[in-house]
Amino acid sequence: MIRIGILGCAEIAFRRFLPALMENKEFECVCIAEEYDKSKLEQFEKEFGIKSAENFQAIIEDENIDAVYIPLPPALHFPYAKAALEHGKHVFVEKPSTISYEQTSELVEIAKQRNLVLQENYMFQYHAQIAEIRKLLKEGLVGDIRLMKASFGFPLRAANDFRYNKALGGGALLDAAGYVTKLARLMLGSTVKVDTATLNGLEGYEVDMYGSATYSNEEGDVLQGSFSMDSYYQCCLEVWGNKGKAFTKRIFTAPPGYTPILELETNEGKQQIELPEDAHFAHSIEKFAEAFGNDTLRMNMYDDLLIQARMVEDIRGFNRNKV
């Protein structure tokens, strides 16, 4: 049994993480702590029966706890993940892992030295639709691929949302762009790189609010990505080939019980292909547990963390003097 503690009463912990965790027999959620709005603790205790700890440090120092889940704003990931790793805890951290390549690299080094799991929760990568789409494309669904496009964006949220707070690690680059970047890694492989990128701000906001990036690999395959935090909702992947075009609209956020549809257009007409229903958050938690005893999986997670952080850093580099 893996005993886990939660640092922070975030919405994603309440809506997604804990419902999935409670279904997994390998875990026991021991406690939760909140340091910024302790009134939230009551809701978690009532819904899930979780005891509350005095503060984050109490969970980190508890020798009876094996792992921590960190759903805090991005700028707080590094100090608490570092402290947890240094106290021998495995870490399941919400995306992005940190706000810089330097910070992520330091966490990876600590985790490696101590043989600890360090997982960044881009859960959509574990949805069965990803594997199915890649399989269909490899089988020639649209012929030879000419271009891939991915978009992830959503309307404005409440003004006090951490995504608009620079000090807390806000901005589209560290939020929506991370999803597109991770998908580029999945579709283009380990040689993926950022060719160019742009970040844009909006009047009244201190962070980047939307942007785009172009990714490619050694084989010359290309994915164009766009991301936004003030837009009409988009969550899609399009693949254009010499024999057709495929499109799906819930590539990042397909919930349990939802059947994704891949729309195919060819010279023969249009077709809708049902993709598998799945529960990607549950699978992400399963991967976390699996990595405890799987050295290869742990090492792959370290590599993926560094590739993701490097690409995010590269996007920032293209816009160093802009936003």
Rank of each mutant, 00 (worst) to 15 (best):
D37W: 04
G8S: 03
I50F: 04
L7C: 06
I32L: 15
F17E: 04
E11Q: 11
C31K: 08
I32P: 04
L21S: 14
E26H: 12
I50W: 06
F44L: 03
L18E: 07
R16W: 15
L18F: 06
F48R: 04
E35V: 09
F44G: 02
P19G: 13
E54M: 12
A20F: 07
I50T: 07
L7K: 02
A33K: 09
I6G: 03
C9D: 02
G49C: 07
S39I: 05
F14P: 01
F44T: 07
C29P: 10
E23V: 10
F17V: 12
N24H: 14
C29V: 15
P19A: 14
E45T: 14
L41H: 02
E47Q: 15
L18S: 04
E23R: 15
Q57S: 11
F14L: 04
K40G: 08
A33R: 06
A10I: 09
F17P: 03
A20K: 09
N24G: 10
K51D: 10
E34P: 00
C29N: 06
C31M: 11
E47D: 10
L18I: 15
A13H: 01
C31D: 02
K51C: 08
E26N: 13
F17R: 05
F56C: 03
D37Y: 01
E45V: 02
R15L: 11
L18P: 05
I12W: 08
M22T: 14
P19K: 14
E45H: 12
L41A: 03
A33P: 05
L41K: 03
A10P: 00
K25D: 13
C9L: 08
S52E: 12
L41P: 02
A33F: 10
F14R: 08
E28L: 09
I12R: 01
E26F: 11
P19Q: 14
F27R: 08
I6D: 01
E34S: 09
R15Y: 07
R15A: 10
E47I: 03
R15D: 12
N24R: 13
M22E: 15
N55V: 09
F44C: 03
F27M: 06
N55L: 02
L41I: 11
K40R: 15
A53R: 02
F44R: 02
C31N: 06
N24A: 13
E23Y: 07
L7Q: 02
K38G: 01
F27I: 12
I50N: 09
K46I: 11
L7R: 08
F14I: 05
I12N: 08
I50R: 03
K40Y: 05
F56D: 03
F27D: 09
R15C: 03
K46C: 00
A33C: 12
I6Q: 04
E47S: 14
L21D: 09
A20I: 04
E34N: 07
Q43P: 05
E26D: 14
A53Q: 08
G8T: 04
E54K: 15
F56M: 03
K38R: 15
Y36G: 00
D37C: 00
Q43H: 10
K46F: 10
F17H: 13
Q57A: 04
I32F: 03
